[in-house]
Design a protein around this nucleic acid. Structure first.
Lengths: 197, 197, 197, 197
DNA sequence: CATGAATGAGTCTTCATTCAT
DNA sequence: GATGAATGAAGACTCATTCAT
């Protein structure tokens, strides 16, 4: 050890990997154990670093969480766009969005799990920023909901809240094994469909 | 359910039991800030006691949580029975149950909020007991769901999970002001109704 | 319960029993678990009382220890007198004393165990008194040692200290089963015998 | 055995390892006041550190004790070997061993004092390990005892127990001043000599 | 870039003791 | 005499964070 033959990656890439490894580990741990229950030591040792070393990359635990939120929003919003951009019928757009959201949160991305599962109140100093990021994502979803043809006596706002709540709750009860995330998504989408009259 | 108006006793002498007050304060704090984020100091000072004094009543923070869970189950199950015992039609029973559940969780009882919002994993030593208490309540609800006349191609298990998830998520997004808990309940019940075919 | 037919013991005896029960339990616990490791709660519950109630009988834990020391000294000194009063030959007196000491400490009296096993430093406020009580007992033993016909080049003081140390250490290694306290006593007495020349 | 004169480094910066100092201070305090009576605060402030800082070096108070035991065994066993390796006559080996043991325990090493004076039961979680370490040392001594030519009617096992008890009790009564550890050792060795008869 | 060592505020908990009833 | 409820000081331990190297 100590001696290291020049690798073909430029230095900047290597360091970038390191930082990404930290984010990845932190996201996984935050998603799994929760923000409060995850210690900087946990994150460090999952990355093969010392706790103090994390502070070279992030000013604080909260800042680390914030970065995860940021990446999560970017990622899941991209997913949503991909899934819905070519679908025109409102309810089909809704179905596609729900399915993709559930798939992403349950399967693909620890980042998304963190954004959904870690509440802004857990990090008081950056509450506002976290809430805004969350809202940013939710608003994409809300647009889709608002396009739905709903019976007049349905309270749209409550419907929105209910839908988002339902989606986000999936990760509280989902356990791998019986159903695939995709199955869950399709079913949930169906349960939430509303007849016009 | 456990709520008791302050008695007009001589305040905080060295005696007379403040156990009820401790439970009440703990339930409120656990429901509001979460289990992990609530310290024994918080609970103590909310009750006008010293942290150590709490241990006269409870062996540990976890045991305190357990007691809250117990009272919560008793209370909410009672609510459910009251609301549904005289209703026969399956969907009407479902509506009544959903409404009462939402009302209880959003308005009446911090205890219920704790049972819904604090996950068994937060208290590893009593995880099993907490999970059993939760299950005990959920099974009452599940019976009601299972009585519903659903289209054959609906996966009952996923429907159950989705309904419970939706209900429990209400407390994550509900803020007092725009809607009453009762309104929320009625709407959510409607959103979850499924046409037979 | 509650109603109690007059017992033939006068009240004072009953209360005296109560106090004695406390002493007995405390002595047993101090001897078994050590002074520091024994809590007032332990003593109380071993006596069927509440912790606070002990303070009717004793001003403090240290005072309780002191009383046990007092009774221990009285008891073991009595034993020593009984065992040696009719023996004249110095080494036989020594044997008798050693045997009786070991028997008492290992078998008969938790009080003696406490006096031997709990060091005065454990209760700083009453260190002096404890030390004096200990010395009181040891001086009885020392008289017996000093009467022994020892070779001139034996340092009597060191011999005394060694003998007492040896005796007191028995309770650190003795386990019931293989040997009776009496056997231990006889053997130890023999090992410590010194030839005249 | 682990003793190291203070180095003339710049005092107490944020770095350079004070692990050795922690062990030394802990050993001294455990030996002096006992394990239970010594607090982590005591150890920390004896080393000029914060209590929490100790946990960088040791996982718990018990683990700290364990490390002291380990070093103690290593040290005293080495002493015993040094003292006896060139002595052939059984009783002379015994004398040499006793003298060295007493010298080590009374004078040279707080570590040895801890191993002798702190009972395994004081640290329940590591009781077994402590007991094994103790036994490891005692077995070296026992070999020496078992080589002695003793009269047939002497119970070897009780003799062993008595000898070890006597040796270990020295540190309970020894006070610096009147005798040197070496004098004590020589005398004790003599007192324990048994005629072949 | 990273580490090893340390900090200090805070965590849950224990326990001898107090005191109104 | 005794209890139930509480105190408060102290205990071991945790953890985000700092900083010299």
């Amino acid at each position: 050890m100590g001696r290291q033959p020049a690798k073909e990656q430029p230095k900047s890439t290597r360091s970038h990997n390191r930082l990404e490894a930290v984010l990845e580990a932190a996201a996984r741990l935050f998603a799994t154990k929760g923000y409060k229950a995850t210690t900087m030591r946990d994150i460090a040792s999952a990355t093969g670093m010392q706790p103090g070393s994390l502070y070279y990359h992030f000013e604080s635990k909260q800042e680390l969480l914030l970065e995860i939120y940021r990446q999560a929003v970017g990622g899941i919003q991209q997913q949503l766009d991909d899934a819905t951009c070519e679908v025109d019928d409102p309810w089909e757009r809704f179905d596609a969005a729900v399915v993709r959201h559930v798939e992403t949160v349950l399967d693909r991305s620890h980042y998304a799990k963190v954004m959904i599962g870690v509440l802004p109140d857990d990090a008081p100093d950056i509450r506002e920023e976290l809430a805004m990021l969350r809202d940013g994502y939710e608003s994409s979803f809300i647009d889709i909901i608002d396009d739905l043809p709903l019976a007049e006596d349905i309270d749209k706002k409550l419907f929105r809240l209910t839908v988002l709540g339902t989606l986000n709750s999936t990760q509280l009860w989902y356990r791998e094994g019986n159903y695939t995330p995709s199955e869950v998504g399709h079913n949930v989408a169906r349960f939430l469909r509303q007849p016009l009259e």
